[in-house]
Design a protein around this nucleic acid. Structure first.
Length: 486
DNA sequence: CTTGCCGGGTC
DNA sequence: GACCCGGCAAG
């Protein structure tokens, strides 16, 4: 539990949100982060994190601890997790207090989430919750506050700094948990924003430490670039946390996975967040759930399914029990699957007409190997496992599809090798990157075999012999029509 | 037979 | 590379 929150916190520095808020990406990232952390710590992630967590608590100094204690307004016995949350938030509240915010961080609100997702400096979002209308003042206020000695009030635990953490969450409490995690994490994402090493000399040592801890745990997630922040390094970038850009996520993941991290995830992340290519029609996207457990690329179409999978397979919990403490949430992520791409992937030999956009007649069972994810290609190539979504020709596909209809793009098509001639060049390119995958190589029509005749009418048919000059060049040359591709 | 287009040739 | 066309295969 405790570790979970810590992790969540750290991850959300980047972006937090939740499916509940339509912040799917955030949720996904969150989980990714979680997973990465878990992977880092090996088979006993929780334990490891727990240690970290405790360290954090103790490093925070007695002051932190004390605050926590006092923070509990109602004195209700909070579970360790709850206390940690308090600590975390308390720390985080430092800046909030500067702004005079006193509200309680009760729940993430859609606004909250939106802010994060909306590429706004996430740090202010929680303020939004507490003190609507104050967020704009935060930066300046905070800096001002840092310039002076920490107000006494800052050390006084605010009764509202407590985030209730149910001791026993019910399966139905996932949303709450996520909300809370999102809230805390997002609030933490403020740190980079307000952390001005040179301007915060007056911050009490315990507080500084706490910050360090928090940052060391979360910073990588809230900053872009591959730099790493050493706890001893006071030169923390003064730039605000990046607008939750894809890069931020990518880099975070990359850095957080640095060591043993499963390259699968790293790569998938790369695909997932790096590609700025415009999205395709939404109606062609399908949400899938991918298990992020190390070496497990399981992809299921339902969250319940993936949760069950994680619960039973990875967490070793009773399969027949529906009970879930929400732990599974952190071991899978949502991915969007491009149905169109899938179509293409399935019919690599029969290129789709640019106007053809319908979903494929069939959708491979989850977990499978057919390529189709648009911007989130989970690269399973390095794992033996199923779920080789990576085999798809993701984003680039979109490009091609939109412009290879006519002669302009002819070169694209033609530059492909014979076997793949009907595939857009981009696809081929993508395939090249993933050819190392264990999955069956991209189907190639063996030389000598003709591709099946397309359905579309060709120039000859459309314009007739009398208008041959209107034919596409290929048709005139008795080559494969490039205007009316199949 | 019509149509699509491969493979190869010419310029 | 542009262009042409014999000829094969699918429909």
């Amino acid at each position: 539990m405790e570790s979970k929150y810590i992790l969540e916190k750290s991850s959300v520095g980047t972006r937090i949100g939740g499916a509940d808020f339509n912040c799917r990406t955030g949720r996904s990232v969150l989980r990714d982060t979680r997973v990465s952390m878990v992977e880092k710590s090996g088979s006993m992630p929780v334990c490891t994190h727990r240690q970290v967590l405790y360290k954090f608590v103790t490093d925070g100094g007695s002051a932190v601890e004390a605050k926590t204690e006092r923070t509990s307004p109602k004195g209700n016995g909070l579970p360790p997790g709850g206390r940690i949350m308090n600590d975390m938030e308390k720390t985080d509240l430092r800046d909030q207090k500067d702004t005079g915010s006193t509200g309680i961080l009760k729940r993430a609100s859609p606004t909250h989430c939106q802010g994060i997702n909306g590429q706004l400096p996430g740090g202010f979002m929680h303020l939004d919750v507490r003190n609507p209308g104050k967020q704009a003042e935060l930066p300046s206020n905070f800096r001002a506050a840092q310039g002076q000695s920490v107000p006494q009030t800052e050390r006084q635990p605010h009764p509202s700094t407590h985030i209730p953490v149910p001791r026993n969450r019910k399966p139905s409490g996932h949303a709450d948990k996520e909300v809370m995690a999102a809230t805390v994490l997002s609030s933490l994402s403020t740190s980079p924003l307000v952390l001005y090493p040179s301007s915060a000399p007056t911050v009490p040592e315990p507080a500084s430490k706490a910050w360090k801890e928090v940052l060391s745990a979360s910073y990588s997630s809230s900053t872009s670039g591959n730099w790493s922040w050493d706890a001893s390094d006071q030169s923390v970038p003064s730039t605000p946390s990046p607008p939750l850009s894809n890069d931020a996520n990518k880099n975070f993941l990359l850095s957080s996975h640095g060591d043993d991290v499963n390259e699968d995830i790293t790569e998938s992340t790369h695909f997932m967040f790096e590609d700025p290519i415009p999205r395709k029609r939404k109606n062609s996207m399908k949400v899938m759930f991918k298990c992020l457990w190390k070496n497990c690329e399981k992809v299921l179409s339902t969250s319940s399914g993936i949760q069950r999978h994680i619960r039973t397979v990875h967490l070793g919990r009773n399969s027949d029990s529906d009970y879930s403490d929400g732990e599974e949430d952190f071991y899978y992520s949502e991915i969007e699957v491009n149905m169109d791409s899938l179509t293409e992937g399935l019919s690599s030999l029969t290129p789709t007409s640019p106007t053809t956009a319908g979903p494929p007649p069939i959708f491979p069972p989850p977990l499978t190997d057919v390529p189709h994810s648009e911007h989130i290609i989970v690269n399973g190539s390095q794992s033996h496992g199923p779920a080789l979504l990576s085999q798809s020709a993701p984003s680039t596909l979109c490009h091609i599809r939109t412009d290879h209809a006519y002669q302009g793009p002819v070169t694209h098509v033609r530059t492909v090798t014979i076997g793949e001639k009907r595939q857009p060049a981009a696809i081929t390119h993508a395939a090249a990157n993933k050819n190392h995958a264990s999955v069956t190589p991209a189907p190639k029509s063996t030389p000598g075999t003709r591709k099946p005749r397309g359905e579309a009418k060709k120039c000859r048919k459309v314009y007739g012999m009398e208008k041959r000059d209107m034919w596409c060049t290929a048709c005139r040359w008795k080559k494969a029509c490039q205007r009316f591709t199949d």
